[in-house]
Design a protein around this nucleic acid. Structure first.
Lengths: 147, 147
DNA sequence: GCAATCCCCAGTAAATAAGTAGGGTATAGT
DNA sequence: ACTATACCCTACTTATTTACTGGGGATTGC
């Protein structure tokens, strides 16, 4: 599995904040119960995202978390990288110096895989996900309240 | 990291076999020492690939491993999937039934990531890697013996 | 002032990754 | 036939990562 629960939970939770953008904070409890995640675990993920500047918090009753920027300005890649670290295939690319760098054919493959993933996640914003969601709803003739 | 050593070692080793396609078997010792991998560990990876029909063996002295098919007929995807299992992002797609399937916007993202990876690895054969390698060699004005 | 909420750090159980170890079987060359 | 070379197979092990759990502390709206 490419993504751990960090990335998967994190993206779902942030998307939830995105759906509530402009409508005030959403509490941890709401999100974690809606998606059946551990509250404390999700809290730790949000702490990471807060430090990176993607979300903000309001403490006290009726407090919670909210997106720090417009959903148009936050990409899926930003969230996934914050939580999972850089998407890499091989240390050969990111850290290690390959002993036969110039002739390493597998390195080329790994780079292609990485590039294709990065291309996908860097070109989808939270706003795009919202649009996509409504398209899905329409396709399935379903209804759901937004808040 | 997307790939474990299984996929990374395995692909490099199989590529080595591919470079020796038609020239007789290559021993485990040669490959593992060339790429600085554990011999016994690589042996286990080769056992998997043999059972899947991608490589064959010759026992006894001067024995070793060889590709079971033409490099044109083996894709990177075949090797990586044999060793790493299916490339998935989320259980939501592969196993679990998502409780809100129709409206799961993150699922769409995960599918896009998976599709882009699969597209890359299913469209590169070992023969392509070989070509790529010579291109790299040319670019760098380097020389290297093939066997 | 108190309950809801975020904040932060520490520990932990389970799974996975990445090997190690060691005995067995086949076979080419002598 | 012997022997060295090589693959074959199963089991064990160690380190790391994952996915939490727990608990005390700080804020703040009512």
């Amino acid at each position: 599995m490419i993504l751990s629960t960090k990335g998967r939970y994190g993206l779902k939770a942030v998307f939830e904040l995105s759906m509530n953008y402009g409508l005030g904070p959403v509490s941890l409890k709401k999100i974690s119960s809606k998606y059946d995640m551990s509250e404390s675990y999700l809290e730790q993920l949000f702490a990471i995202l807060r430090k990176k500047g993607y979300i903000e918090t309001v403490r006290g009753p009726q407090g919670g978390y909210l997106l720090a920027k417009d959903p148009k300005e936050i990409t899926v890649g930003m969230i996934l990288r914050a939580l999972e670290g850089d998407i890499t295939t091989s240390e050969c690319i990111s850290k290690e110096v390959c002993s036969r760098e110039a002739v390493c054919a597998t390195r080329v493959i790994f780079e292609k895989i990485e590039n294709s993933i990065n291309h996908v996640i860097d070109n989808i914003t939270l706003a795009d996900m919202k649009t996509e969601k409504y398209n899905l709803l329409e396709e399935n003739n379903e209804q759901e309240s937004i808040s």
